[in-house]
Design a protein around this nucleic acid. Structure first.
Lengths: 242, 242
DNA sequence: CGATCGTTTGATCCGCATCAAGATAGGTGG
DNA sequence: CCACCTATCTTGATGCGGATCAAACGATCG
């Protein structure tokens, strides 16, 4: 279980946890490896575990009646996969979670989590914080989608990626396929592809899966990290021209 | 402060709170009345209070650079207005909150809330639950907006309203203006209006602000309460014909 | 009774989806 | 090393849905 301890300590959500708490957690959780394409859970499955990504990439998505997949989120190391299900009126998963890149996942019995939520003073606040940010992000994107063009949304997203992964703005590779990104942005691959061409005019060049912000001065204005789409937000003023 | 005690006890989030906790809460909060149109807070203001709606209706919205308002949520009695701001990296509000109908609002110092979150075992889980549901709802709507037509979305929403307010499906009045609803659904009033006409063909008649589900058998299929937009969801199958 | 706001309706336009056909790349086996 | 295959991506042509602009209509209120 040494691997477990190490994995736990590396997770922000369990940072600053005392040794005894870590030990308790470790003995009530397990770390597992999953290959690309593996389903962590599917819609309708019973909710059994609380899961946290330790390594790799996880796609969370829903399926429409016509069989089309709609990605709600792409999760990376440190992210909680189903924090919203710790306390839920439902006993079944409402989404699907699938491994994109080979992944390592920490799994904790959800009933155990519920039972011991109050024992760990630090845990509940961090879950709250995580959910809050997720909610804000979701609502921000809702606003974006009803006020910005596809091109602007993609520009915003690429900037966000660069910040999230701490990439070099001068040049980096997309961490996952364009199809997945398009799905994540709720747009068609075709639209996404066209969009990338338009971006070259504003200092964002994408060739293959390599991205470069060629005009950092311009591009700098695009950073929309915690933008709330207010009248003062320079990002949207800059992108308005796109 | 008697009004305060009564107001607190009526709120689901404080249900089952012991007398001593209620007393502590009461002495650290206040209930205030606000007239229609009053801003509870505006984007950029310092976050000072955690607020809960006791009576009336609150519109939470963001403002785009071009001055257009985008409604993120319409809150009613029992709803937390800014639960996501209890633990936030920001010290300023990212949204605006404005009174729609004359409202009564419970206000608790946010620093006090943070400080005493752990003292109330029941509080954190309930906040978690509230945020979880809000997040699910937000993501569900994101899926809806990228897979359903405006007509379908409105049908879904009207059903939801009917359930939320426990209205009689055979006939009820819209609880707020069509303009507000349109904004909430991220669509133009003109589009919303046209949409209502189309709904008559599927057993939902809206004349003035009066709504009636004239074909309950059909309409029953539309209820999309906790629908996850899965292949099995009868709602979307029924609405697919719209 | 005019003024203002909310709603409806009409005409038009634009953006993204859709359908479909090439292009490119990665992987496999001969 | 090349031919083949499949998955991913790009590009083109077209259509539809909802936004936009604008005007008429209705309701409420001083």
């Amino acid at each position: 279980m040494n691997q477990g301890i190490e994995a736990l300590k590396a997770l922000p959500i369990f940072a600053d946890f005392g040794g005894e708490n870590l030990a308790i957690l470790t003995s009530n959780s397990r770390v597992r490896q999953y290959p690309s394409g593996h389903y962590l859970y599917m819609h309708g499955d019973d909710i059994k575990n609380f899961k946290i990504v330790c390594r790799g990439t996880i796609q969370v998505f829903r399926e429409t009646p016509d069989g089309h997949e709609v990605t709600s989120d792409i999760l990376i190391a440190g992210d909680c996969i189903n924090a919203d299900e710790i306390i839920a009126r439902h006993t079944a998963h409402m989404t699907n979670a699938r491994v994109v890149d080979d992944a390592m996942v920490l799994e904790i019995s959800i009933s155990w989590m519920r039972l011991h939520l109050k024992d760990f003073d630090q845990l509940a606040p961090r879950l709250l914080q995580g959910l809050s940010e997720r909610l804000r992000e979701s609502q921000k994107e809702a606003v974006h989608r009803s006020t910005m063009s596809a091109t602007q949304i993609v520009a915003c997203y690429l900037q966000g990626l660069c910040v999230l992964y701490d990439f070099d703005p001068q040049g980096f590779d997309l961490p996952y396929s364009k199809t997945l990104i398009a799905s994540r942005l709720h747009m068609e691959p075709a639209t996404f592809s066209r969009t990338l061409q338009k971006l070259k005019g504003v200092g964002i060049s994408v060739t293959g899966n390599h991205v470069a912000f060629t005009n950092l001065h311009k591009a700098g204005h695009f950073v929309c990290d915690e933008c709330s789409v207010s009248a003062e937000c320079p990002t949207h003023q800059a992108l308005a021209a796109v």
